[in-house]
């Protein structure tokens, strides 16, 4: 089964990621991303009927940390690479949509 990504799907993903794309880009990305999917699809050739599903490749589990405070960054360090800041806050373009979880 060959999966491909049409322009509508590209626009949907772009909207979810809050990216503005042009029609030309939608066409271009649809074909590029479809090629990526096709490439990954080679994995379907491997017979995995007897392989249990896993979310991880490493045979490691339970990596816990003690509940001990470690030094944080200073506010200046935190804001150092930010495009804009104000009184210790990050400053971003106004968000109106109340879509936090």
């Amino acid at each position: 089964m060959a999966s491909s990504l049409d322009e509508a799907a590209v626009r949907h993903v772009a909207r979810l990621a809050r990216l503005k794309i042009t029609d030309t880009e939608a066409t271009l990305f649809a074909s590029q991303l479809s090629k990526v999917l096709e490439y990954v699809e080679q994995l379907n050739e491997v017979d995995t009927r007897n392989v249990p599903p896993t979310a991880h490749a490493l045979p490691v589990s339970n990596v816990f940390r003690e509940d001990v405070v470690r030094a944080s960054w200073t506010t200046d360090q935190a804001l150092h690479n930010a495009p804009d800041g104000h009184d210790g806050f990050f400053r971003v373009p106004k968000v109106l949509d109340q879509e936090s979880s």
Binding site: D67, V69, R70, S72, T74, T75, A78, L79, G88, F89
Partner: peptide, 27 residues
């Protein structure tokens, strides 16, 4: 009410100055 965050060692504090309990992980 852990002393630190879920995935890094920054303290969980209410009313701390803004962005004073942050590190590369939680940023």
């Amino acid at each position: 009410q852990t002393k630190t965050k879920m995935f890094c060692g920054c303290p969980v504090r209410f009313e701390a100055p803004p962005n004073s309990c942050v590190c590369p992980v939680c940023l």
